[in-house]
């Protein structure tokens, strides 16, 4: 099987978000970055498991600047066979999807994995766009994926339940929690990653239809109002009369 896994870079889950004084940009000084957890823990690991069971190769792809090579090497250390970086700032989901589609178009991947969303812009847009650009079926937010021959059975998270679907390769899937178990790269993987190919590809020309014009921080909480455990009726009264939520 020939598999492609789309990986993205996001600020660490613990990162504090700060803005430039005019709020036009993020203040990224000192920001720590990680591989998007859905891409690393679920999409990449499930792709590796499939190839371990049936043979084939896993290519990871990232749209981003050379500073992303660190997370790309991590994906290689976890077990991906080769990597591609499209050398451009990932300015929008539209831009990213067009870049990946342009690369994947003639490669005939059996399966393209994404994460369910990036934890920075929480878009959930790239995988659907990519599927449309490549004219492929798409299963979003899959928590389970099993292959039999060239047919996959997937569980997809929906409101208040799960949808079980079948689809033949090739297709695009976005991975949610449950699809695999996180793998920690070991020393051998890290050494081997240094020798694995990381191909840098020039971007295709794409106009961005959207752009961020302003950021804002959420309004600060007024501070917690503490209620004595002996006076729970007071909490109920406040929720009704002050907060108006019950």
């Amino acid at each position: 099987m020939k598999l492609l896994v789309c990986i993205s870079k996001t600020p660490d889950t613990e990162a504090k978000i700060q803005l430039t004084p005019d709020g036009k940009q993020l203040d990224t000084s000192g920001m720590k970055y990680i591989m998007n957890p859905y891409d690393e823990w679920y999409a990449l690991v499930r792709a590796l498991e499939l190839v371990e069971a049936q043979g084939g190769s896993v290519t990871v792809i990232n749209v981003g600047p050379s500073s992303n090579d660190q997370i790309i090497r991590k994906a290689l250390a976890i077990g991906a066979h080769e990597a591609v970086r499209i050398d451009a700032e990932p300015t929008s989901a539209w831009f990213v999807a067009h870049q990946i589609a342009a690369f994947a178009k003639n490669e005939n991947y059996d399966l393209i994995f994404c994460g369910k969303e990036t934890i920075d812009y929480n878009g959930s847009e790239v995988p659907a766009m990519l599927a449309e650009l490549l004219d492929l079926p798409f299963v979003a937010w899959a928590s389970k994926l099993d292959m039999e021959g060239n047919t996959a059975t997937l569980h997809r998270d929906i409101e208040g339940g799960v949808e079980i679907v079948k689809v033949a390769t090739p297709f695009v899937v976005s991975a949610a929690k449950g699809m695999a178990e996180q793998r920690i790269p070991n020393m051998r993987g890290i050494m081997m990653a240094k020798r694995k190919p990381l191909k840098v590809v020039e971007p295709v020309a794409v106009d961005d239809p959207v752009s961020v014009v302003q950021y804002a921080l959420p309004p600060k909480k007024k501070g917690v109002k503490l209620i004595e455990p002996e006076h729970i009726d007071e909490l109920v009264r406040l929720l009704h009369e002050e907060a108006k939520v019950i």
Binding site: A93, A97, G123, S124, E125, A128, M129, L133, E163, P209
Partner: peptide
Amino acid sequence: SHTSTGKSIAGRVAIRLGAGSVSG
């Protein structure tokens, strides 16, 4: 809506229409 359905289709509709999109 930004539901499991919306997340599956918003990006596809945007590409089909050549439309800029914002989700959520």
